[in-house]
Protein backbone atom coordinates (compact mmCIF):
# COMPACT_ATOMS: atom_id res chain seq x y z
CA UNK A 1 0.00 0.00 0.00
CA UNK A 2 2.68 2.47 1.05
CA UNK A 3 4.67 1.49 -2.02
CA UNK A 4 1.85 2.43 -4.37
CA UNK A 5 1.30 5.62 -2.47
CA UNK A 6 4.86 6.82 -2.64
CA UNK A 7 5.12 5.78 -6.24
CA UNK A 8 2.15 7.83 -7.26
CA UNK A 9 3.38 10.66 -5.17
CA UNK A 10 6.75 10.75 -6.86
CA UNK A 11 5.16 10.32 -10.25
CA UNK A 12 2.94 13.30 -9.67
CA UNK A 13 5.78 15.33 -8.31
CA UNK A 14 7.97 14.50 -11.25
CA UNK A 15 5.34 15.54 -13.70
CA UNK A 16 4.74 18.83 -12.00
CA UNK A 17 8.43 19.60 -11.84
CA UNK A 18 9.00 18.83 -15.48
CA UNK A 19 6.07 20.98 -16.46
CA UNK A 20 7.08 24.01 -14.47
CA UNK A 21 10.77 23.80 -15.31
CA UNK A 22 10.39 23.17 -18.97
CA UNK A 23 7.09 24.51 -20.19
CA UNK A 24 8.12 25.22 -23.78
CA UNK A 25 8.73 21.68 -24.97
CA UNK A 26 6.57 19.85 -22.50
CA UNK A 27 3.85 17.82 -24.17
CA UNK A 28 1.42 17.57 -21.22
CA UNK A 29 1.53 21.34 -20.87
CA UNK A 30 0.31 21.82 -24.41
CA UNK A 31 -2.32 19.18 -23.98
CA UNK A 32 -3.71 20.67 -20.79
CA UNK A 33 -7.28 21.81 -21.32
CA UNK A 34 -7.62 23.54 -17.99
CA UNK A 35 -4.64 25.04 -16.22
CA UNK A 36 -5.14 26.24 -12.67
CA UNK A 37 -2.16 28.22 -11.41
CA UNK A 38 -1.76 29.23 -7.78
CA UNK A 39 -5.43 30.07 -7.52
CA UNK A 40 -6.81 31.46 -4.28
CA UNK A 41 -10.21 32.85 -3.36
CA UNK A 42 -10.90 34.99 -0.33
CA UNK A 43 -14.39 35.99 0.68
CA UNK A 44 -15.25 38.61 3.23
CA UNK A 45 -17.46 37.30 6.00
CA UNK A 46 -20.68 39.24 5.85
CA UNK A 47 -20.93 42.08 8.35
CA UNK A 48 -17.27 41.85 9.38
CA UNK A 49 -13.84 42.65 8.02
CA UNK A 50 -12.63 39.12 8.64
CA UNK A 51 -11.48 37.36 5.51
CA UNK A 52 -12.62 33.84 4.74
CA UNK A 53 -10.07 31.89 2.72
CA UNK A 54 -12.02 29.35 0.70
CA UNK A 55 -9.24 27.96 -1.47
CA UNK A 56 -5.56 28.78 -1.50
CA UNK A 57 -2.65 28.08 -3.79
CA UNK A 58 -4.42 25.58 -6.03
CA UNK A 59 -2.30 24.10 -8.80
CA UNK A 60 -3.97 21.63 -11.08
CA UNK A 61 -3.91 20.69 -14.74
CA UNK A 62 -6.73 18.88 -16.46
CA UNK A 63 -5.81 17.22 -19.74
CA UNK A 64 -7.95 17.47 -22.83
CA UNK A 65 -10.61 14.78 -22.79
CA UNK A 66 -9.76 13.72 -19.27
CA UNK A 67 -12.22 12.61 -16.61
CA UNK A 68 -10.97 14.10 -13.37
CA UNK A 69 -12.75 13.60 -10.07
CA UNK A 70 -12.29 15.90 -7.12
CA UNK A 71 -12.80 14.75 -3.53
CA UNK A 72 -12.34 16.60 -0.27
CA UNK A 73 -13.91 17.09 3.14
CA UNK A 74 -17.09 19.15 3.23
CA UNK A 75 -16.51 22.88 3.20
CA UNK A 76 -13.04 22.55 1.65
CA UNK A 77 -13.89 24.78 -1.29
CA UNK A 78 -14.59 22.20 -3.99
CA UNK A 79 -17.64 24.08 -5.22
CA UNK A 80 -15.74 27.37 -5.04
CA UNK A 81 -13.09 25.87 -7.30
CA UNK A 82 -15.77 24.78 -9.73
CA UNK A 83 -17.35 28.26 -9.69
CA UNK A 84 -13.93 29.70 -10.45
CA UNK A 85 -13.42 27.40 -13.44
CA UNK A 86 -16.95 28.24 -14.59
CA UNK A 87 -16.09 31.92 -14.38
CA UNK A 88 -18.98 32.65 -12.02
CA UNK A 89 -16.54 34.23 -9.57
CA UNK A 90 -13.09 35.67 -10.13
CA UNK A 91 -10.05 34.33 -8.27
CA UNK A 92 -8.40 36.59 -5.71
CA UNK A 93 -4.96 35.33 -6.69
CA UNK A 94 -3.59 33.26 -9.54
CA UNK A 95 -5.23 32.46 -12.81
CA UNK A 96 -7.22 29.82 -14.63
CA UNK A 97 -6.53 29.11 -18.29
CA UNK A 98 -8.72 27.20 -20.68
CA UNK A 99 -6.97 26.31 -23.92
CA UNK A 100 -4.31 28.77 -22.87
CA UNK A 101 -6.71 31.66 -22.44
CA UNK A 102 -7.55 33.21 -19.10
CA UNK A 103 -11.08 32.74 -17.82
CA UNK A 104 -12.79 36.10 -17.47
CA UNK A 105 -16.40 35.06 -17.09
CA UNK A 106 -18.91 32.34 -17.78
CA UNK A 107 -19.20 30.98 -21.30
CA UNK A 108 -20.69 28.25 -23.39
CA UNK A 109 -17.35 26.46 -23.70
CA UNK A 110 -18.07 25.14 -20.22
CA UNK A 111 -21.27 23.52 -19.00
CA UNK A 112 -22.23 23.01 -15.36
CA UNK A 113 -24.38 20.26 -13.87
CA UNK A 114 -25.59 21.00 -10.36
CA UNK A 115 -26.59 18.61 -7.60
CA UNK A 116 -30.05 20.14 -7.41
CA UNK A 117 -30.54 19.91 -11.21
CA UNK A 118 -31.39 23.62 -11.57
CA UNK A 119 -33.94 22.90 -14.27
CA UNK A 120 -36.35 25.66 -15.18
CA UNK A 121 -39.66 24.42 -13.77
CA UNK A 122 -41.75 26.31 -16.32
CA UNK A 123 -40.02 24.63 -19.24
CA UNK A 124 -40.58 21.11 -20.47
CA UNK A 125 -37.69 18.66 -20.65
CA UNK A 126 -37.12 19.55 -24.29
CA UNK A 127 -37.36 23.30 -23.71
CA UNK A 128 -34.90 23.01 -20.82
CA UNK A 129 -32.37 21.36 -23.10
CA UNK A 130 -32.93 24.10 -25.65
CA UNK A 131 -32.11 26.80 -23.13
CA UNK A 132 -28.38 26.93 -23.76
CA UNK A 133 -28.96 26.74 -27.49
CA UNK A 134 -31.17 29.81 -27.29
CA UNK A 135 -28.34 31.59 -25.53
CA UNK A 136 -26.10 30.49 -28.39
CA UNK A 137 -28.66 31.83 -30.91
CA UNK A 138 -29.09 28.51 -32.70
CA UNK A 139 -32.07 28.65 -35.12
CA UNK A 140 -35.32 27.24 -33.77
CA UNK A 141 -35.53 24.19 -35.98
CA UNK A 142 -31.98 23.08 -35.36
CA UNK A 143 -32.52 23.73 -31.67
CA UNK A 144 -35.42 21.29 -31.61
CA UNK A 145 -33.43 18.63 -33.45
CA UNK A 146 -30.38 18.96 -31.27
CA UNK A 147 -32.45 18.93 -28.09
CA UNK A 148 -34.15 15.73 -29.23
CA UNK A 149 -30.80 14.18 -30.04
CA UNK A 150 -29.46 14.84 -26.56
CA UNK A 151 -32.68 13.71 -24.93
CA UNK A 152 -32.19 10.42 -26.78
CA UNK A 153 -28.58 10.31 -25.67
CA UNK A 154 -29.59 10.38 -22.01
CA UNK A 155 -32.32 7.80 -22.65
CA UNK A 156 -35.38 9.99 -22.16
CA UNK A 157 -37.06 9.66 -25.54
CA UNK A 158 -40.79 10.08 -25.05
CA UNK A 159 -40.44 12.48 -22.14
CA UNK A 160 -40.03 15.60 -24.29
CA UNK A 161 -43.08 17.38 -23.01
CA UNK A 162 -42.87 16.55 -19.34
CA UNK A 163 -42.28 19.33 -16.87
CA UNK A 164 -39.52 18.80 -14.30
CA UNK A 165 -41.99 18.19 -11.48
CA UNK A 166 -43.39 15.28 -13.49
CA UNK A 167 -39.98 13.58 -13.64
CA UNK A 168 -38.12 11.53 -11.04
CA UNK A 169 -34.84 12.79 -9.59
CA UNK A 170 -32.78 10.59 -11.87
CA UNK A 171 -34.69 11.75 -14.94
CA UNK A 172 -34.29 15.36 -13.93
CA UNK A 173 -30.56 14.92 -13.65
CA UNK A 174 -30.50 13.28 -17.07
CA UNK A 175 -32.28 16.31 -18.50
CA UNK A 176 -29.78 18.59 -16.75
CA UNK A 177 -26.88 16.62 -18.23
CA UNK A 178 -28.49 16.75 -21.67
CA UNK A 179 -28.96 20.49 -21.29
CA UNK A 180 -25.27 20.97 -20.53
CA UNK A 181 -24.20 18.72 -23.39
CA UNK A 182 -26.56 20.26 -25.93
CA UNK A 183 -24.65 23.49 -26.46
CA UNK A 184 -21.56 21.36 -26.98
CA UNK A 185 -19.11 22.69 -24.40
CA UNK A 186 -15.58 21.30 -24.32
CA UNK A 187 -15.61 21.09 -20.56
CA UNK A 188 -18.29 19.64 -18.34
CA UNK A 189 -18.19 20.77 -14.70
CA UNK A 190 -20.23 18.58 -12.40
CA UNK A 191 -20.92 19.51 -8.78
CA UNK A 192 -21.93 16.35 -6.93
CA UNK A 193 -24.53 15.63 -9.59
CA UNK A 194 -25.57 12.24 -8.27
CA UNK A 195 -25.47 12.95 -4.54
CA UNK A 196 -29.23 13.43 -4.21
CA UNK A 197 -30.11 10.20 -6.02
CA UNK A 198 -30.75 6.74 -4.63
CA UNK A 199 -27.94 4.20 -4.94
CA UNK A 200 -29.43 2.28 -7.86
CA UNK A 201 -30.17 5.34 -9.95
CA UNK A 202 -26.74 6.71 -9.12
CA UNK A 203 -24.96 3.61 -10.40
CA UNK A 204 -26.90 3.56 -13.64
CA UNK A 205 -26.23 7.26 -14.18
CA UNK A 206 -22.53 6.76 -13.47
CA UNK A 207 -22.35 4.08 -16.15
CA UNK A 208 -24.26 6.28 -18.52
CA UNK A 209 -22.03 9.25 -17.85
CA UNK A 210 -18.97 7.14 -18.68
CA UNK A 211 -20.63 6.02 -21.89
CA UNK A 212 -21.46 9.61 -22.83
CA UNK A 213 -17.94 10.74 -21.93
CA UNK A 214 -16.39 8.09 -24.15
CA UNK A 215 -18.75 9.02 -26.95
CA UNK A 216 -18.32 12.78 -26.77
CA UNK A 217 -14.68 13.19 -25.64
CA UNK A 218 -15.56 15.93 -23.20
CA UNK A 219 -13.17 17.06 -20.50
CA UNK A 220 -15.00 16.41 -17.25
CA UNK A 221 -14.30 17.79 -13.79
CA UNK A 222 -16.50 15.92 -11.36
CA UNK A 223 -16.87 16.84 -7.70
CA UNK A 224 -18.03 14.13 -5.35
CA UNK A 225 -18.27 13.13 -1.72
CA UNK A 226 -18.10 9.46 -2.56
CA UNK A 227 -14.69 7.82 -2.72
CA UNK A 228 -16.14 4.88 -4.66
CA UNK A 229 -17.66 7.23 -7.17
CA UNK A 230 -14.38 9.13 -7.53
CA UNK A 231 -12.39 5.95 -8.20
CA UNK A 232 -15.02 4.45 -10.47
CA UNK A 233 -15.40 7.52 -12.68
CA UNK A 234 -12.07 9.32 -12.60
CA UNK A 235 -8.96 8.67 -14.64
CA UNK A 236 -7.34 10.72 -11.93
CA UNK A 237 -8.63 11.63 -8.50
CA UNK A 238 -7.60 14.96 -6.99
CA UNK A 239 -7.80 14.95 -3.20
CA UNK A 240 -8.24 18.31 -1.49
CA UNK A 241 -7.24 19.36 2.01
CA UNK A 242 -9.60 20.88 4.53
CA UNK A 243 -10.16 24.63 4.38
CA UNK A 244 -8.38 26.57 3.00
CA UNK A 245 -8.63 24.03 0.22
CA UNK A 246 -5.45 22.95 -1.55
CA UNK A 247 -4.75 19.98 -3.76
CA UNK A 248 -3.25 17.41 -1.42
CA UNK A 249 -2.51 14.69 -3.94
CA UNK A 250 -3.54 13.63 -7.42
CA UNK A 251 -3.87 9.89 -7.85
CA UNK A 252 -3.80 8.10 -11.19
CA UNK A 253 -6.47 5.45 -11.50
CA UNK A 254 -4.81 3.06 -13.89
CA UNK A 255 -7.61 0.85 -15.15
CA UNK A 256 -7.17 -0.13 -18.78
CA UNK A 257 -10.92 -0.21 -19.32
CA UNK A 258 -14.03 0.25 -17.26
CA UNK A 259 -15.83 -2.78 -18.61
CA UNK A 260 -17.27 -5.33 -16.20
CA UNK A 261 -17.55 -5.09 -12.45
CA UNK A 262 -14.80 -2.65 -11.72
CA UNK A 263 -15.73 -2.41 -8.07
CA UNK A 264 -14.81 -6.07 -7.54
CA UNK A 265 -11.26 -5.51 -8.84
CA UNK A 266 -8.74 -5.72 -5.98
CA UNK A 267 -7.04 -2.58 -7.28
CA UNK A 268 -10.33 -0.75 -6.83
CA UNK A 269 -10.18 -1.51 -3.13
CA UNK A 270 -6.55 -0.42 -2.97
CA UNK A 271 -7.28 2.94 -4.60
CA UNK A 272 -10.29 3.37 -2.42
CA UNK A 273 -8.27 2.75 0.73
CA UNK A 274 -5.51 5.07 -0.40
CA UNK A 275 -7.92 7.96 -0.90
CA UNK A 276 -9.76 7.13 2.29
CA UNK A 277 -6.49 7.35 4.21
CA UNK A 278 -5.64 10.67 2.60
CA UNK A 279 -9.08 12.05 3.42
CA UNK A 280 -9.34 10.79 6.98
CA UNK A 281 -7.01 13.38 8.46
CA UNK A 282 -8.55 16.15 6.41
CA UNK A 283 -12.06 15.28 7.49
CA UNK A 284 -10.93 15.31 11.11
CA UNK A 285 -9.30 18.71 10.57
CA UNK A 286 -12.45 20.04 8.89
CA UNK A 287 -14.60 18.88 11.78
CA UNK A 288 -12.23 20.48 14.25
CA UNK A 289 -12.51 23.73 12.27
CA UNK A 290 -16.27 23.64 12.29
CA UNK A 291 -16.27 23.15 16.01
CA UNK A 292 -14.02 26.14 16.68
CA UNK A 293 -15.95 28.40 14.32
CA UNK A 294 -19.38 27.29 15.53
Amino acid sequence: MTVTQTQTQTQTRNRTRIRTENPAQDRPERQAKIVIRDVGKVFRIRGTDRPFIAVDGIDLDVRDGEFLTLVGPSGCGKSTLLDLIAGLTAPTTGEILIDGEAVTGPGLDRGIVFQQYALFPWRTALANIEFGLEAKAVPRKERRERARHYLDLVGLTGFEHRYPHELSGGMRQRVAIARSLAFDPDVLLMDEPFAALDAQTRESLQEELLRIWEKTNKTIVFITHGIDEAVYLGQRVAVMTSRPGRIKRVIDIAFESREGDLRADPRFGAYRHEIWTLLRDEVAAAQEQERTIG
Binding site: A86, G87, G105, F114, Q116, A118, F120
Partner: peptide, 21 residues
Protein backbone atom coordinates in the same frame (compact mmCIF):
# COMPACT_ATOMS: atom_id res chain seq x y z
CA UNK B 1 -30.73 31.67 -6.86
CA UNK B 2 -29.58 28.36 -8.33
CA UNK B 3 -31.65 29.02 -11.46
CA UNK B 4 -30.01 32.41 -11.82
CA UNK B 5 -26.61 30.83 -11.32
CA UNK B 6 -27.37 28.13 -13.85
CA UNK B 7 -28.49 30.68 -16.43
CA UNK B 8 -25.50 32.89 -15.73
CA UNK B 9 -23.18 29.94 -16.25
CA UNK B 10 -24.57 29.70 -19.78
CA UNK B 11 -23.39 33.23 -20.42
CA UNK B 12 -26.78 34.98 -20.48
CA UNK B 13 -26.70 38.77 -20.57
CA UNK B 14 -28.53 40.56 -17.74
CA UNK B 15 -31.37 41.44 -20.09
CA UNK B 16 -31.79 37.86 -21.35
CA UNK B 17 -31.50 36.59 -17.80
CA UNK B 18 -34.36 38.85 -16.81
CA UNK B 19 -36.46 37.89 -19.81
CA UNK B 20 -35.86 34.16 -19.73
CA UNK B 21 -35.49 33.40 -16.04
Amino acid sequence: PLLVKSARSMGLSPFRLFQKV
